[in-house]
């Protein structure tokens, strides 16, 4: 049995919960409500009046080829960020797990990037790849490769993917390492005695036993790529060149605050709200079921 603290009456529990409830209400429920409300109107250019359009904003969005392109961009971007950051993190975690000495130092160093704010990370990478003064682009130039993410769409996408994945590697690394260390050593040894070499062991024992961690990280990283990479994209490419790195959340910003199309921007927020809701449900469903081997 879990021990539960019980309170008599309502006052104390309400007081204790109030701060969280207020924060959620002010910063989440109110803006979300506003977004849903505004998505049903088109305001005039001066913001003085609003015209009811029902689902018109949504209809318009679905017919908008730029918006559909942004969906594809988002999908490509999140898959790349998730695969890159998780793959690299898993590789590092496997190496760190094999370490006997000095693993503490590696762990600490590998965790640092996570502490860097996305916008700052964006600026760091931007400097390194700056077409005129960046170190990396300079070396690439020496190799005869003319790096220019300002003009080249694929290079721009590559750069935001790398900059967004970098800090995530730390986060994923921590979870993968914890997951690896939770696998009983004797199970791995039993597999070795059964004749499995490193790669076979990884494929047939370690990776399956790691699947709860992997699944958890998959959801968390997709959510990250969808919503939290705004700072990176804003500092590095501002969504360009053309629309090449305009992911959905960036389009909400650029349509709303740059182009001042508030109705459409609000409708896009509502669509994002639905997506994040769906992802959260997937995640909770999974956590309920916990380990499924």
């Amino acid at each position: 049995m879990e021990k539960r603290v019980t309170f008599k009456g309502w006052l104390l529990p309400m007081c204790l919960l109030m701060p969280q409830i207020i924060i959620t209400a002010v910063f989440f429920f109110y803006p979300a409500g506003q977004a849903i409300y505004q998505s049903l109107f088109i305001p005039d250019p001066f913001g003085l009046s609003m015209q009811w359009v029902g689902l018109g904003n949504f209809e318009y969005l679905l017919g908008d080829s730029y918006y559909r392109a942004s969906f594809v961009t988002t999908a490509v971007f999140s898959i790349l960020v998730t695969v890159t950051s998780m793959g690299f993190a898993l590789y590092l975690a496997v190496l760190a797990d094999r370490l006997i000495k000095g693993s503490g130092i590696y762990r600490t160093l590998l965790i640092w990037p996570y502490a860097v704010a996305p916008a700052v990370a964006g600026v760091l990478w931007l400097f390194m790849f700056n077409t005129r003064v960046g170190v990396v682009s300079w070396y690439l130039g020496l190799l005869g490769y003319d790096w220019n993410h300002v003009l080249n769409e694929a290079e721009a996408m590559g750069l935001v993917v790398v900059a967004s994945s970098w800090g995530r590697v730390s986060y994923n690394f921590l979870f993968f390492l914890a997951g690896l260390q939770a696998i009983p050593k004797s199970v791995i040894e039993a597999a070795a005695i059964d004749g499995a070499r490193f790669w076979t062991r990884f494929r047939t024992i370690v990776f399956p036993l790691l699947s709860p961690t992997t699944f958890f990280l998959l959801v968390v990283n997709i959510v990250y790529a969808f919503f939290e990479t705004f700072g990176v994209i804003h500092t590095i490419t501002s969504g360009g060149p053309q629309q090449a790195t305009t992911i959905l959340v960036y389009k909400v910003f650029s349509d709303g605050f740059v182009s001042q199309d508030l109705g459409s921007s609000a409708a896009q927020s509502v669509i994002l709200l639905v997506i994040v809701g769906a992802l959260t449900i997937v995640q909770f469903k999974f956590i309920e079921r916990r380990v499924h081997y």
Binding site: P184, S186, V187, E189, A190, I205, P208, L209, Y293
Partner: peptide, 9 residues
């Protein structure tokens, strides 16, 4: 092994 070390999955 003492704890059997079966493959749980």
């Amino acid at each position: 092994f003492q704890n059997y070390a079966l493959y749980p999955h």
